[in-house]
């Protein structure tokens, strides 16, 4: 079933979008969030969404609809002007980003974000910053990541900045996985990557899904994202627009993409 945001009663106290009130508190959710970078313009206007535990939730929308901003707010990089962010029912609206990892959250940001002048190994060590006090656990976590992504082990002494774009993406994913997060926010995972690499990135996201992690994916690559999705939200002009299970979207995809091209 797909429904229009207009069908849902307005306001921050809107009922759970998937209609399961009892589930509303589980996973990561955003309630009635209004946010923007400058005082005179709003990027998000009363947006509510919920990433259900163990599922892939995809956030779609045309350029400038506020998708990436929604992720920034969810991860604490931008403080909302009103509204709440909840993780398993607990309010975390004002928890700064550096504490989110300890809550089991992680963000894979858009574009390149490796530390270019550090080696791959050092990049991973930074990913394990929370374990820094416990050398043995840190070493074990790094070994876990190396076992998961064997090519990282080959490159461990290389400077991250010297790697190709696709290799750097893998370093970023590896760095995120050192902390073994439960809830993963992913922003435009395929931007600027070669098609072969893009496929690998979506395979990796599929693997994260199999591992029952909660995933919130923001993506321009609508088909690939929808293929992975359990539940989909769309934003338009910084407001909730459509939402529903994947099945409800599949036949309407073409029309949707076409309508966004107008923007």
């Amino acid at each position: 079933m797909m429904r229009h945001a207009a069908d849902v009663p307005a306001g921050s106290g809107a009922p759970s979008p998937n209609g399961l009130a009892s589930n509303a508190n589980a996973g990561l959710s955003m309630r009635g969030v209004t946010a923007g970078y400058y005082s005179h313009d709003l990027v998000l206007n009363n947006v509510s969404l919920n990433a259900r535990p163990g599922k892939v939730t995809v956030l779609l929308g045309p350029n400038g609809s506020g998708k990436s901003t929604a992720l920034r707010v969810l991860y604490g990089l931008l403080r909302p002007r009103s509204g709440q962010i909840l993780l398993d029912g607990r309010e975390i609206t004002t928890v700064p980003p550096q504490r989110r990892l300890a809550l089991g959250m992680a963000l894979l940001p858009q574009g390149r974000s490796v530390f270019p002048e550090l080696t791959v190994q050092e990049n991973l060590e930074i990913g394990g910053w929370l374990l820094a006090r416990d050398r043995r656990r840190l070493a074990a976590a790094l070994e876990g990541v190396y076992a998961r992504y064997p090519s990282l082990k080959e490159w461990r002494q290389k400077q991250a900045g010297s790697l190709s774009g696709g290799q750097q993406r893998l370093v970023e994913i590896g760095r995120m996985m050192v902390a073994d997060p439960r809830v993963i926010l992913i922003d435009e995972p395929s931007v600027g990557l070669a098609p072969v690499i893009v496929d690998q990135v979506y395979e990796e996201i599929a693997r994260l899904k199999e591992e029952q992690r909660t995933i919130l994916l923001v993506d321009q690559n609508v088909r690939a994202a929808v293929a992975l999705a359990d539940y989909i939200y769309t934003l338009e002009y910084g407001r909730n627009n459509l939402e529903g299970e994947r099945g409800a979207f599949e036949d309407r995809l073409e029309a949707l993409i076409k309508s966004w091209l107008r923007f």
Binding site: L77, P97, L101, L107, P109, L118, E125, I126, L130, A132
Partner: peptide, 24 residues
Amino acid sequence: TLYGKAIRAMSQNLDAARISGIDT
């Protein structure tokens, strides 16, 4: 040192350091 690496990481990408859990 890990602190030293974290400081260098912070200078190379502040946001990435913060999302890696570093208290910048």
